[in-house]
Amino acid sequence: MSSEAAWVPVALSASIEPGTSAGAVVEGAELVVWRDAKGVAHVWEDRCPHRGMRMSFGFVRGDHIACLYHGWSYDTAGQCRHIPAHPDLDVPKTIKIATYAVEEAGGVIWTRLATAAQAADPLPTMGTNLPVRSLYADCSAAHALAILKQTLLPVGKGETCPGRLQVVTPHVWTLEAGALSLSIAVQLIGPQKIGLHILADEGAADLIPHLARWAQALRLALEEPVTVAEVA
């Protein structure tokens, strides 16, 4: 388990367009990640207090997100502001969705599954990055680390180079090969399920398509049945 103070990634910033929402799971906790019309990202518990419907199925209007079931509409603080079936009702303050701290850094949306009162770890420093893709695979973080230690990265002109893996924090890994520097924001979804939000340094624009194909092949390697030798 991660510390609740830790910043954990839930999506690439570029994957959550203004006015849209998506679901994300962090260590079994279901979250909705949404971006309001002004471009501000929000991470909440993925549950409407009314009937338990997932808010990630809902729709964003301006700086409110509404539940798909009955249109209950919530402001950026998670407070319900409007119930269409009772348009004149002054909505009770108790109708509120749990919200989490959000920061965007290095091209990634980060959240902290702690209450506001708890001290926060520092935000991961990732520099300026170009998004490659988010890769989802059925494997543990430990297995992903073992595979990434052996990976060959595309470095241009059809050549590959062994990557040097560094675990900066449980949620930030880096891979370097020659002039190329990859940042991987690690989303622990479940014991055997992982999301790798992969970004490259600014100088690697021409390599992005190759890196996307490398990531696609990486998923095959991550999900290959583990051999006895590796277990031992």
Binding site: E17, T20, A22, G23, F57, R133, G195
Partner: peptide, 18 residues
């Protein structure tokens, strides 16, 4: 979602669907 597969893991398809 009718057959139990969510959209979480498919950001590029979410973009395309929108």
């Amino acid at each position: 979602r009718d057959y139990g597969i969510d959209h979480d893991e498919f950001p590029a398809l979410r973009r395309w669907l929108r």
